[in-house]
Simulated assay, not measured.
Amino acid sequence: MTLTDTISLVNVIKTTDADGYDTTTETLTTVKCDSGNGVTRSEFYEAMKAGIKLTAVFEMWACDYGGQSLIEHNGTRYKVERAYPLTDGGIQLNCSEVVR
């Protein structure tokens, strides 16, 4: 794991305002990552069977990841479909692109 790139972890906080309306606030936390690993063929096709189109894989230190379900990389937002622990203290995030 070389950690030569960065991603932003999206923390979504849902609250209710004074008038009773639900509001959502997002904060971004930038962390180092390795974005050079692509989705493997077997992972891609297994995900497709479940109706998920994996488009990116990111590796980072597990201690930096707080279970966020959304991340941003180079202006593109991704949904974390699977977080897989690695043996070296890292974590691999298999992601699909979020269409806005």
Rank of each mutant, 00 (worst) to 15 (best):
C33T: 07
E43D: 15
T40S: 15
E26C: 08
Y65C: 01
D64Y: 10
V57Y: 00
Y45N: 05
A56P: 03
S96K: 13
N94Q: 15
T76V: 14
N94H: 12
M60S: 03
D34Q: 13
V80K: 06
G38D: 12
Q68N: 14
V39P: 05
E72K: 15
A83K: 14
D64E: 15
L3N: 12
H73P: 01
K49Y: 04
Q92A: 10
N94E: 06
R82V: 01
K79I: 08
A47I: 12
G38I: 02
C63A: 12
G75Y: 11
C63Q: 11
T23A: 09
V10T: 10
T29E: 14
F58Y: 14
T25M: 06
E26Y: 14
E97K: 14
E59M: 03
G66P: 07
K14N: 10
G75H: 12
D22Y: 10
D34E: 15
Y21C: 03
C33F: 01
L3V: 04
L28G: 02
N74Q: 15
T29Y: 02
C33G: 03
T25K: 15
T55E: 11
F44G: 03
D34R: 07
E81N: 13
P85L: 08
D5K: 11
G51R: 11
L54I: 07
S35N: 13
V80H: 04
S69Y: 07
K79N: 11
A56F: 05
N74W: 00
S96D: 04
D22W: 08
S69W: 05
T76N: 11
L3I: 04
V31F: 02
T23L: 13
R41P: 00
V57F: 00
E26F: 11
A56W: 06
F44C: 04
D22F: 08
T76M: 10
I91W: 10
E97Y: 04
T4C: 05
Y45W: 11
G66E: 08
I52W: 08
I91M: 11
K79W: 09
I52D: 09
V99E: 14
D64A: 10
Y84V: 12
T40D: 12
G67S: 06
R77V: 14
F58D: 02
I91K: 13
A56L: 02
T4W: 04
D88A: 03
T87I: 09
D17G: 07
I13K: 14
S69D: 05
G51H: 11
G51T: 07
G36L: 01
V99H: 10
E43I: 02
N37M: 10
I91N: 09
G66M: 09
G67Q: 08
I91C: 09
S35E: 03
T29A: 13
T24E: 15
